[in-house]
Design a protein around this nucleic acid. Structure first.
Lengths: 272, 272
DNA sequence: ACTCATTTGTGTACGACATACACAGATAAG
DNA sequence: CTTATCTGTGTATGTCGTACACAAATGAGT
């Protein structure tokens, strides 16, 4: 976004080189040669300031000036800690992600453990909705990011899956969780901006309602109308007959399907 | 991001009101009262200019100045077509999404159709990687966005699922597709920036490789080492024994699990 | 203790960008 | 023909990321 070199490739440092540098900044804690004055704060403090700003007012509030002011710095002083905003964000993202919760009780079945993992990840994303605001798709993967992956793999440790299958299962669950948390994240973001859930649901529902009676959307139109006799506009996905599922229940429902699919694969391995 | 009103709520127009307006701009084609001069171009032309810029150089290249120049306009002239950049992006996103491919042959089983839909959606996302760069999570849903939903629902038309279950299945598949296409999108973006797949894979693989021999990541470390005897750094997810799956094969593998899960649910409905 | 290379934080400056505002020419309804 | 109204232009403002040069602080080597 900001510091992008420019259109075509061919600058002094290739884009690939750039990725490597970003990754290095996340992992290699460079040692301080003890010549000049000591830094006033630690890199971690800068990151915390950045995170607290994003937590309060979203990613847009995370500006170099705001972070600096938060620390009692001049803007330019930040560049002694991070070479550019991108690097600061990389570090903030990894720190904000945190580590997955430790297992509190005894080891459960893989299914229970995966489920806990998925809900934990979803909760993490919803609690920091600005993570989903990030325009950087291929941010380098830091220590905490890896720790989430590690935690997932541990849930499958006893299943006898091959390493390659494990990685693919990770991709399935991670994909489902991050992809399907969109609406919940969006709601979380709206709420942190002072929108009530009702207002938000109404706004999102309103878009869907435009499909009603539009010949381009026969199925959608039918579904929306059939549900609980007329659209209420009070539920994110339109209100449904009986007791409409909450967003969390919908997430759980989908997760159960995914887990069923994994289960079936495990079964197929046992009885070929 | 850009045009955000500011930190706390309480401006002249509430955030919720703002969402409604954005949605309205996407749907309600306001009629031209025929008093002044005719506009030089159509809204659609502006959108196309914006899309072509984003296609070429990513979302960062989509600036009001660049779009205006593309059209032979002054920057400010754009504001006669869209009230702000956000509105232009909303429109560009929906247009860029396009409509799902028409069914060419006869109706297939739900499973085949869902699969086609998922691959089509994935292909769409990969062909326009900047869509994933969007910092706006809760963009209003336009006509094309709804058409993708509609197409999905039609694939399930014969399954006998209840409307509410259909919507949840949509959420499952859509979640999986968009969530798990991350790496493919990232690769697509990198390639459009002149990075070779090898360079990209190496950069992404390098992050993972940091886990090796790190006591914090026992499982990950073991998996990475076990795979095909030593990490090659030549595959996005680390190379795996035998013939490592390509990214597309991994996507397919995961999709099959998801479809199995749905299948199982369908079966459970038939034999309660 | 003295020196000086090195590092930290500061001040200033610049270029990109979104956008507000006022204006000039074009146009069609009356 | 008049005039309200719409289109595109020119200019200005505020925010933001960041380059650059400098002064004060600091500690390694003498």
């Amino acid at each position: 976004m900001a510091g992008r070199t420019g259109p075509q490739a061919g600058k002094s440092e290739s884009e690939a080189e750039d990725l490597r540098k970003r990754s290095g900044l996340l992992w290699d804690a460079q040692q301080r040669p003890g010549r000049g004055p000591k830094p006033t704060v630690r890199r971690e403090d800068v990151v915390q300031a950045a995170i607290s700003l994003a937590d309060r007012d979203g990613l847009a509030a995370l500006t170099m000036q705001a972070v600096a002011e938060r620390l009692g710095f001049t803007t330019m002083a930040l560049y002694r800690y991070f070479p550019n905003k991108e690097a600061l964000i990389d570090a903030s993202v990894d720190a904000a992600m945190g580590t997955p919760p430790e297992r509190s009780g005894p080891r459960e079945s893989w299914r229970v453990e995966v489920k806990l993992w998925a809900f934990a990840k979803r909760a993490m994303l919803c609690s920091r909705p600005w993570l989903a605001e990030l325009p950087f798709v291929a941010a380098p993967h830091g220590p905490n990011w890896l720790s989430w992956h590690e935690a997932f793999l541990q849930t499958l440790a006893d299943t006898g899956l091959s390493p390659e299958d494990m990685m693919d299962m990770l991709s399935v669950v991670h994909g489902y969780v991050s992809g399907s948390s969109d609406t919940a994240i969006s709601l979380a973001r709206a709420m942190s901006r002072g929108i009530t859930p009702e207002q938000w649901a109404q706004a999102v529902g309103a878009d869907l309602c435009r499909a009603i009676n539009d010949p381009r959307y026969p199925m959608l139109s039918a579904i929306l109308q059939s549900s609980s006799g007329g659209i209420t506009e009070s539920s994110p996905l339109p209100a449904r007959g009986g007791r409409p599922r909450t967003m969390e229940e919908s997430f759980d429902f989908g997760l159960e399907r995914v887990l069923d699919g994994i289960q079936r694969y495990l079964d197929s391995l046992k009885t070929p």
